[in-house]
Design a binder for these strands. Structure first.
Length: 691
DNA sequence: CTTAGGG
DNA sequence: CCCTAAG
């Protein structure tokens, strides 16, 4: 407290916190844990120190009286009924968003304790809250049962204090990380990390040692003060958190909070290390579930971001949670949260490990699944395949992760991942088309998402990618599949038309799909039947990257060009579909249009060659883009002479060639059928002669 | 569906 | 390559 009560010598002061707090419930807070916690969080540290002082003070000053008072009145006064959050501190919990909350809670609890120990004993709680909370205090915020959270702190390896950390102390805390977070939507859970908090609070500057020293010096820092400090520092968030903590919670916490004083140094006299009784644990379990629900509700109501953060936290916790008890509750909560909400979480949550993990999984799935599907050779079928592949992927992903904690998140992520790529594409396409991105997306997941999408649309493909991540659930939907086709859209914005949302003509769609499948195939590295070239692109791509640079373009190989030439020579120009059937039956990815285009290009190239002959300067230029062998070019020239591609266009240059087709000039548009090559001419002559 | 042609 | 319009 601000009172700045003189701190009773810590040395003697080590009072049994437990006694003070003798809570109806078993919860014990072990100093060790506390200390550890502090370590993790600078700010908390300050608080902790103060707390320790407090304890000491209370202990020393009125030693037992204080204790008695605390135990008796305070505890009694405190609403024991309140659910006690079971808080376990983990060394690492710092990383988690929850941690932050925990820290806060812890602080609160501490403050409460303080208050109780010092003055509070007599003072009504509300006051105490005001005092303690300082910044956040006053409002009689309603106690939210939801809030309590259980934290686990595993070993406290406290270095400086030499605490026997071995024991796990449970600190019941009401806080809800969620609530706190919710207060400040803008702030991401991460931002809330304890570390950050520490930043906010000047107190963070204090090192644990310093604090201790201070304590030794008899420094009196009331917890309340510590708590208040944030106020001065303008950590709104923190304040909010405090508020959330609210009196009720605090009271409860205090009451419930079991404190174990293991601190050898600080609390030499008494160290009661009581493990939480079974009953305590059990009690916790129920409240927890309820809390989780509430939390969920709150989050949903408030901001998705919050939800995500929460969820993430939960998720992490699950991982972290050592105790079985906790897990079930967590899981339940997580499950309850459900996929829909997850989407936002992605944004907030650090995709880092989770995402990465997911991605890996996804990738793996993609790789595997698509293959099987891809086997189908047909072009058009491919499209279907690709779609199915997507589904499969999802399935796989899901199954792989069902494991439990990760299940939900992983699943979502996977979905996101899968969809993401596509989404990005879609996004692009949608932009082009001007179709509403959101609407197009089947997802409909969350309006929030939609909003995000819109924003992205405006902004960039990059954002789109993010969005993808965000969407968790949607991925599964067929739409996602469609999106695949869009991949290329990303590359080339041109395709606008393709937007799947539109009812594109079946033909186009197919085309796209086909292409998409091809692309996917490449990406996935699936086995394309034919794809010699396709593979190249595939191998390297990371999922995201793939979308970015992936090209449908398959380079035309010399062999293909030769085939094309042969085809043209046989069937002439214009029968591309025929040529395709006969010469490119194996390569599904080459369409008749492709052949035509290629031929066009070849003509250009060949034309270039001829020009080269005429003008050397150009020659170089052409060389760059034309790796084609001369022989091929020559053939092309010949063919071009025979079959002028653009029908109007005439190979005028042919003249210099050996071509006997001098008649081009008069032969306006020699029909391919009519057009006769020298060989044909001879043949004909021969036949005629024979006859 | 196939071609032709523009982008 | 993509897309579209035209047979």
């Amino acid at each position: 407290m601000e009172n700045g009560r003189p701190v009773l010598g810590l040395e003697d002061g080590t009072i049994d916190v437990e006694r003070l707090l003798v809570e109806p419930q078993d919860g014990h807070v072990s100093m060790d844990s506390v200390m550890c916690f502090n370590k993790k969080i600078p700010k908390n540290t300050m608080e902790m120190v103060d707390v320790s002082c407090r304890f000491g003070a209370s202990g020393t000053g009125s030693a037992k009286e204080g204790e008695d008072i605390l135990n008796g009145e305070v505890l009694d006064a405190m609403p024991s009924e309140v659910d006690v959050g079971y808080l376990r501190l983990h060394d690492e919990f710092c990383s988690m968003g929850d941690e932050y909350l925990l820290g806060v809670q812890f602080a609160e609890s501490i403050t409460n304790l303080d208050y109780g120990s010092t003055e509070a004993l007599q003072a009504p709680f509300p006051d105490s809250q005001m005092q303690v909370s300082g910044a956040g205090s006053g409002s009689g915020s309603t106690c939210k049962s939801d809030r309590f959270r259980k934290m686990e702190v595993l070993d406290c390896k406290n270095n400086q204090f030499n605490y026997g950390c071995s024991e796990l102390s449970d600190i019941p805390s009401y806080h809800e990380c969620e609530m706190l977070i919710g207060e400040e939507p803008s702030i991401s859970p991460r931002s809330f990390s304890l570390q950050n908090i520490g930043k906010f609070h000047n107190s963070s500057s204090y090192s644990f040692e310093d604090i201790l020293s201070d304590e030794n010096n008899g420094r009196q820092s009331a917890l309340g003060e510590m708590f208040c400090s944030p106020k001065t520092e303008n950590s709104n968030e923190f304040e909010l958190a405090v508020q959330d903590g609210e009196t009720c919670q605090r009271q409860e916490t205090l009451a419930t909070t079991p404190v174990q004083a293991n601190c050898t140094d600080i609390l030499p006299t008494q160290k009661r290390s009581r493990k939480p009784t079974q009953r305590y644990i059990d009690e916790l379990a129920d409240p927890f579930s309820t809390n989780s629900k509430k939390r969920r509700e709150v989050s949903s109501s408030t901001l998705k971001v919050k939800d995500k953060s929460l969820r993430v936290k939960d998720h992490k916790k699950c991982h972290m949670g050592t105790r079985a008890i906790r897990l079930p509750a967590e899981e339940s909560s997580v499950m309850a949260i459900q996929v829909p909400f997850a989407s936002l979480a992605h944004n907030e949550c650090p995709k880092d490990h989770l995402n990465s993990k997911v991605e890996c999984v996804n990738i793996g799935n993609l790789m595997t699944n698509p293959k099987g599907k891809r086997s189908a050779p047909e072009n058009q079928k491919k499209r279907d395949e690709s779609i199915t592949a997507v589904y499969l992927k999802k399935d796989d992903y899901v199954t792989s992760h069902k494991k439990g904690d990760d299940y939900v998140t992983s699943r979502k992520k996977r979905d996101d991942f899968v969809t993401n790529r596509k989404k990005g594409d879609d996004y692009v396409t949608s932009r082009k088309k001007g179709d509403d991105y959101v609407t197009s997306r089947k997802k409909g997941d969350d309006f929030v998402i939609a909003a995000a999408n819109l924003k992205k649309r405006d902004d960039h493909a990059i954002e789109a990618s993010q969005k993808k991540k965000n969407d968790c659930t949607g991925a599964a939907t067929p739409a996602a599949n469609l999106k695949k086709r869009e991949d290329r859209a990303i590359e080339a914005c041109q395709k606008k038309k393709n937007d799947f949302t539109d009812a594109t003509t079946p033909k186009k769609r197919d085309k796209h799909l086909k292409h998409a499948s091809g692309n996917k195939r490449d990406d996935c590295d699936t086995s394309a039947l034919h794809e010699k070239k396709s593979e190249n692109s595939l191998t390297d791509e990371s999922p995201e990257e793939v979308s970015a640079f992936r090209k449908h373009h398959r380079l035309w190989t010399i062999a293909e060009v030769r085939k094309l030439i042969d085809g043209v020579s046989q069937y002439g120009v214009g029968r591309w579909s025929r040529i395709k059937k006969l010469f490119f039956a194996t390569s599904a990815h080459r369409t008749s249009v492709d052949l035509k285009d290629k031929w066009r290009n070849l003509l250009k190239a060949s034309g270039g060659i001829q020009e080269q002959g005429n003008q050397q300067g150009e020659k170089k230029r052409n060389m760059a883009w034309r790796p084609l062998p001369k022989s091929i070019l020559r053939r092309v020239c010949e063919l071009s002479a025979m079959y002028p591609y653009p029908k109007g266009q005439r190979p005028k240059k042919i003249t210099d060639n050996n071509n006997n087709n001098n008649y081009n000039s008069y032969n306006e548009s020699p029909d391919r059928s009519t057009d006769i090559t020298l060989s044909d001419y001879r043949r004909i002559l021969r036949s005629v002669d024979d006859n």
